[in-house]
Design a protein around this nucleic acid. Structure first.
Lengths: 99, 99
DNA sequence: CCAACTCATAGCATCGATGCTATGAGTGGC
DNA sequence: GCCACTCATAGCATCGATGCTATGAGTTGG
Protein backbone atom coordinates (compact mmCIF):
# COMPACT_ATOMS: atom_id res chain seq x y z
CA UNK A 1 0.00 0.00 0.00
CA UNK A 2 2.71 2.45 -0.84
CA UNK A 3 3.79 2.86 2.77
CA UNK A 4 4.22 6.60 3.00
CA UNK A 5 4.31 6.74 6.74
CA UNK A 6 7.25 8.46 8.35
CA UNK A 7 6.07 12.04 8.81
CA UNK A 8 2.62 10.87 9.61
CA UNK A 9 4.04 8.64 12.29
CA UNK A 10 6.27 11.40 13.54
CA UNK A 11 3.26 13.63 13.90
CA UNK A 12 1.14 10.92 15.48
CA UNK A 13 3.83 10.12 17.98
CA UNK A 14 4.13 13.79 18.86
CA UNK A 15 0.43 14.12 19.37
CA UNK A 16 0.53 11.13 21.68
CA UNK A 17 3.34 12.29 23.96
CA UNK A 18 1.83 11.96 27.44
CA UNK A 19 3.25 14.62 29.73
CA UNK A 20 3.27 17.24 27.03
CA UNK A 21 -0.15 18.70 26.49
CA UNK A 22 1.43 21.87 25.10
CA UNK A 23 3.44 19.91 22.59
CA UNK A 24 0.26 18.12 21.65
CA UNK A 25 -1.50 21.40 21.08
CA UNK A 26 1.32 22.79 18.99
CA UNK A 27 1.34 19.63 16.91
CA UNK A 28 -2.41 19.84 16.50
CA UNK A 29 -2.18 23.45 15.36
CA UNK A 30 0.55 22.50 12.92
CA UNK A 31 -1.66 19.77 11.54
CA UNK A 32 -4.61 22.11 11.13
CA UNK A 33 -2.45 24.70 9.40
CA UNK A 34 -1.12 22.07 7.06
CA UNK A 35 -4.62 21.05 6.10
CA UNK A 36 -5.70 24.66 5.66
CA UNK A 37 -2.80 25.45 3.39
CA UNK A 38 -3.36 22.34 1.34
CA UNK A 39 -7.01 23.28 0.91
CA UNK A 40 -6.12 26.79 -0.20
CA UNK A 41 -3.45 25.51 -2.55
CA UNK A 42 -5.73 22.98 -4.17
CA UNK A 43 -8.44 25.59 -4.35
CA UNK A 44 -6.15 27.45 -6.71
CA UNK A 45 -5.25 24.38 -8.64
CA UNK A 46 -1.62 24.78 -7.65
CA UNK A 47 0.85 21.96 -7.28
CA UNK A 48 3.13 21.84 -4.27
CA UNK A 49 5.80 23.01 -6.65
CA UNK A 50 3.83 26.08 -7.65
CA UNK A 51 3.21 27.04 -4.07
CA UNK A 52 6.83 26.37 -3.18
CA UNK A 53 8.00 28.70 -5.91
CA UNK A 54 5.66 31.45 -4.77
CA UNK A 55 6.63 31.05 -1.15
CA UNK A 56 10.31 30.83 -1.87
CA UNK A 57 10.80 27.26 -0.76
CA UNK A 58 11.05 23.81 -2.28
CA UNK A 59 8.39 21.24 -2.99
CA UNK A 60 9.75 18.96 -0.31
CA UNK A 61 9.39 21.67 2.29
CA UNK A 62 5.78 22.21 1.31
CA UNK A 63 5.05 18.49 1.45
CA UNK A 64 6.69 18.21 4.85
CA UNK A 65 4.66 21.10 6.16
CA UNK A 66 1.32 19.98 4.71
CA UNK A 67 1.86 16.54 6.18
CA UNK A 68 2.31 18.07 9.61
CA UNK A 69 5.84 16.71 9.65
CA UNK A 70 7.16 19.68 11.59
CA UNK A 71 5.86 22.50 13.69
CA UNK A 72 6.24 25.49 11.39
CA UNK A 73 7.85 28.77 12.40
CA UNK A 74 6.21 32.15 12.00
CA UNK A 75 8.44 33.30 9.11
CA UNK A 76 7.48 30.24 7.11
CA UNK A 77 3.81 30.71 7.86
CA UNK A 78 4.10 34.32 6.76
CA UNK A 79 5.65 33.36 3.45
CA UNK A 80 2.97 30.78 2.80
CA UNK A 81 0.28 33.25 3.76
CA UNK A 82 1.62 35.80 1.32
CA UNK A 83 1.90 33.28 -1.45
CA UNK A 84 -1.74 32.41 -0.87
CA UNK A 85 -2.93 36.00 -0.50
CA UNK A 86 -3.85 35.39 3.09
CA UNK A 87 -3.13 37.06 6.40
CA UNK A 88 -1.39 35.27 9.22
CA UNK A 89 -3.08 35.81 12.54
CA UNK A 90 -1.52 34.76 15.81
CA UNK A 91 -3.29 35.66 19.01
CA UNK A 92 -3.49 34.83 22.67
CA UNK A 93 -7.09 35.09 23.75
CA UNK A 94 -7.80 35.01 27.48
CA UNK A 95 -9.83 31.98 28.39
CA UNK A 96 -11.35 33.68 31.43
CA UNK A 97 -12.95 37.14 31.24
CA UNK A 98 -10.81 40.10 32.28
CA UNK A 99 -12.67 40.02 35.59
CA UNK B 1 18.66 56.02 30.39
CA UNK B 2 20.01 52.68 31.42
CA UNK B 3 20.99 51.61 27.91
CA UNK B 4 19.18 48.29 27.56
CA UNK B 5 19.50 48.06 23.85
CA UNK B 6 20.72 44.85 22.30
CA UNK B 7 17.54 42.85 21.76
CA UNK B 8 15.68 45.98 20.92
CA UNK B 9 18.26 46.73 18.27
CA UNK B 10 18.17 43.16 17.04
CA UNK B 11 14.43 43.43 16.63
CA UNK B 12 14.61 46.85 15.02
CA UNK B 13 17.19 45.67 12.55
CA UNK B 14 15.02 42.70 11.70
CA UNK B 15 12.01 44.87 11.14
CA UNK B 16 14.06 47.04 8.82
CA UNK B 17 15.43 44.33 6.57
CA UNK B 18 14.55 45.56 3.09
CA UNK B 19 13.88 42.61 0.81
CA UNK B 20 12.16 40.65 3.51
CA UNK B 21 8.63 41.81 4.05
CA UNK B 22 7.71 38.41 5.45
CA UNK B 23 10.51 38.56 7.97
CA UNK B 24 9.29 42.02 8.89
CA UNK B 25 5.80 40.72 9.45
CA UNK B 26 6.98 37.83 11.55
CA UNK B 27 9.07 40.20 13.63
CA UNK B 28 6.10 42.50 14.02
CA UNK B 29 3.90 39.63 15.16
CA UNK B 30 6.58 38.55 17.61
CA UNK B 31 6.70 42.07 18.98
CA UNK B 32 2.94 42.26 19.38
CA UNK B 33 2.85 38.89 21.10
CA UNK B 34 5.57 40.01 23.48
CA UNK B 35 3.60 43.08 24.41
CA UNK B 36 0.42 41.08 24.84
CA UNK B 37 2.07 38.57 27.14
CA UNK B 38 3.68 41.30 29.17
CA UNK B 39 0.33 42.98 29.59
CA UNK B 40 -1.33 39.76 30.70
CA UNK B 41 1.53 38.98 33.06
CA UNK B 42 1.45 42.41 34.66
CA UNK B 43 -2.31 42.22 34.84
CA UNK B 44 -1.81 39.32 37.20
CA UNK B 45 0.89 41.06 39.13
CA UNK B 46 3.36 38.35 38.19
CA UNK B 47 7.07 38.86 37.84
CA UNK B 48 8.89 37.43 34.82
CA UNK B 49 10.11 34.81 37.20
CA UNK B 50 6.60 33.79 38.21
CA UNK B 51 5.51 33.45 34.62
CA UNK B 52 8.68 31.57 33.76
CA UNK B 53 8.02 29.07 36.51
CA UNK B 54 4.45 28.53 35.35
CA UNK B 55 5.46 28.18 31.72
CA UNK B 56 8.37 25.92 32.47
CA UNK B 57 11.10 28.27 31.37
CA UNK B 58 13.55 30.72 32.91
CA UNK B 59 13.24 34.41 33.60
CA UNK B 60 15.76 35.22 30.91
CA UNK B 61 13.71 33.40 28.31
CA UNK B 62 10.64 35.39 29.26
CA UNK B 63 12.55 38.67 29.13
CA UNK B 64 13.98 37.78 25.72
CA UNK B 65 10.54 36.93 24.41
CA UNK B 66 8.77 39.97 25.84
CA UNK B 67 11.43 42.21 24.36
CA UNK B 68 10.79 40.73 20.95
CA UNK B 69 14.34 39.45 20.92
CA UNK B 70 13.38 36.34 19.00
CA UNK B 71 10.56 35.06 16.89
CA UNK B 72 8.86 32.57 19.19
CA UNK B 73 7.96 29.04 18.17
CA UNK B 74 4.49 27.57 18.55
CA UNK B 75 5.38 25.25 21.46
CA UNK B 76 6.67 28.19 23.47
CA UNK B 77 3.59 30.25 22.70
CA UNK B 78 1.43 27.34 23.79
CA UNK B 79 3.22 27.06 27.10
CA UNK B 80 2.91 30.76 27.74
CA UNK B 81 -0.74 30.66 26.77
CA UNK B 82 -1.42 27.87 29.20
CA UNK B 83 0.43 29.60 31.99
CA UNK B 84 -1.74 32.65 31.39
CA UNK B 85 -4.99 30.74 31.02
CA UNK B 86 -5.27 31.78 27.42
CA UNK B 87 -5.82 30.04 24.12
CA UNK B 88 -3.33 30.22 21.31
CA UNK B 89 -4.94 30.92 17.97
CA UNK B 90 -3.06 30.68 14.70
CA UNK B 91 -4.96 31.17 11.50
CA UNK B 92 -4.55 31.92 7.84
CA UNK B 93 -7.42 34.09 6.72
CA UNK B 94 -7.87 34.65 2.98
CA UNK B 95 -7.36 38.26 2.08
CA UNK B 96 -9.46 38.03 -1.07
CA UNK B 97 -12.90 36.41 -1.21
CA UNK B 98 -13.05 32.80 -2.39
CA UNK B 99 -13.90 34.19 -5.82
C1' DC C 1 24.32 51.32 53.47
C1' DC C 2 22.71 46.68 52.71
C1' DA C 3 19.49 43.09 51.26
C1' DA C 4 16.04 41.53 48.23
C1' DC C 5 13.59 41.77 44.11
C1' DT C 6 12.88 42.66 39.11
C1' DC C 7 14.28 42.94 34.62
C1' DA C 8 17.87 43.18 30.64
C1' DT C 9 21.82 40.92 28.67
C1' DA C 10 25.74 38.04 27.80
C1' DG C 11 27.53 33.69 26.30
C1' DC C 12 27.15 29.08 25.41
C1' DA C 13 25.06 24.22 24.40
C1' DT C 14 21.59 21.86 22.15
C1' DC C 15 17.60 20.73 19.71
C1' DG C 16 14.69 21.24 15.96
C1' DA C 17 12.94 23.60 11.76
C1' DT C 18 14.16 24.83 7.20
C1' DG C 19 16.70 24.42 2.77
C1' DC C 20 18.59 21.36 -0.50
C1' DT C 21 19.06 17.47 -3.70
C1' DA C 22 17.70 13.00 -5.09
C1' DT C 23 14.61 9.31 -5.42
C1' DG C 24 10.49 6.19 -5.40
C1' DA C 25 5.69 5.50 -6.24
C1' DG C 26 1.28 6.62 -8.53
C1' DT C 27 -1.15 8.70 -12.39
C1' DG C 28 -2.26 10.26 -16.94
C1' DG C 29 -1.23 11.13 -21.78
C1' DC C 30 0.86 9.70 -26.11
C1' DG D 1 6.04 1.14 -22.91
C1' DC D 2 7.74 5.85 -22.08
C1' DC D 3 7.55 10.50 -20.50
C1' DA D 4 5.92 14.05 -17.57
C1' DC D 5 3.90 15.55 -13.52
C1' DT D 6 2.76 15.31 -8.57
C1' DC D 7 3.57 14.15 -4.07
C1' DA D 8 6.07 11.60 -0.08
C1' DT D 9 10.51 10.69 1.95
C1' DA D 10 15.33 10.28 2.85
C1' DG D 11 19.55 12.38 4.35
C1' DC D 12 22.30 16.09 5.23
C1' DA D 13 23.91 21.12 6.28
C1' DT D 14 22.87 25.20 8.50
C1' DC D 15 20.58 28.68 10.95
C1' DG D 16 18.07 30.22 14.67
C1' DA D 17 15.17 29.61 18.87
C1' DT D 18 15.26 27.90 23.43
C1' DG D 19 17.45 26.54 27.88
C1' DC D 20 20.86 27.57 31.15
C1' DT D 21 23.77 30.23 34.39
C1' DA D 22 25.66 34.50 35.76
C1' DT D 23 25.75 39.33 36.09
C1' DG D 24 24.72 44.37 36.05
C1' DA D 25 21.55 48.09 36.86
C1' DG D 26 17.56 50.15 39.02
C1' DT D 27 14.18 50.08 42.85
C1' DT D 28 12.36 49.58 47.31
C1' DG D 29 12.35 48.61 52.22
C1' DG D 30 14.92 47.99 56.36
Amino acid sequence: MSEQETWRELRDRRMAEPGAAEAYEAARIAYELGKAVRAMREGRGWSQNDLAREAGMTQSAVARFEAGGTIPTLPVLERLARALDADLEVRLTPRAPAA
